[in-house]
Amino acid sequence: MTQAAISPKELSVQAATRLRPIERTIEFGLLLAAIFSVFITAGIVYVLFSEAVPFFRHPDVSVWKFLTDTEWTPLFSVKHFGIMPLVVGTLWTTVIALLVAMPVGTIIAIWLSEFANAKVREIIKPVLELLSAVPTVVYGYFAITVVAPAMQPVYTWLAEAINSVLATVAPGASPIATELPLFNMLSAGIVMGIMIVPYVSSLSEDAMRSVPMLLREGSYGMGANRLTTAVRVVFPAALSGIAASYILAISRAVGETMIVAIAAGQQPNLTANPAEGGATITAYIVQVSMGDLPHGSLEYQTIFAAGITLFFMTLAFNLMGAWLRKRYRQAY
């Protein structure tokens, strides 16, 4: 090689030393970006506490009352500050959503992972994921224009059937309402359940597919059919991953806002009947934010008290989910 006056390797030595300060600066910049996420968390915790603490210090409020009072009427003249009606509303819509999403999502996940061929899976999975990409305000509209009206006759028929059974079994019992109001927690929960199906189906499918073929072969090798292999071998092996997907679904449902704000009604309602209207923690925050509350007022602080409750509820679920995911990753 007879080339060039300055050999590139001599250039290189200078280049290598010249680069160093830039490298450091860039690394520092990237580090700052990574640390920024910690500031967001710090910001969330700081804001929630700094606005909620004065709320709990207020003479009309106490943590005890907050947790035990059965009424939440901070915007009325007679004020009650019991978070329970909102928590119950949140739990009802969440439970209904899970009753839809868990069985449907799990069955689809088993079908995709163990029955469908690769090509079908590659197409179906992303298309199903579109369900969780639909803006929630659109789902809210869907709930009150399609789902709730469609549910009303079904509910009436069911309720009348239950009442007639009740009348014969326990004649003294008061019959349940046969009318389903347009705004009710049931239809909001069902729509929310449809929205979170992909969280369950995709993550559970991932978990089941990461189960080694060897386990399946062991089962097939003994003459088991697909369903038996899927239910007895693959499902238990992937259980912690599947559980993590349920937890994520719960956390989504608890934090979901617009569907319930639009379709569940907005009156806090401590009820055992999800066919009634009710308000969730999130719906309450939206409702108050739509109005114009003066900064620093007690009413303004209630949304942060509600927010801190929501934050800790989802945090608990998220930590549980992270712990489960970690466990199933270590399994193989």
Binding site: I44, L48, G255, G307, F311, L315, G321
Partner: peptide
Amino acid sequence: AGVPSIIYGLM
């Protein structure tokens, strides 16, 4: 990633 969006709004 698991914090509800409305909490970001409060923040």
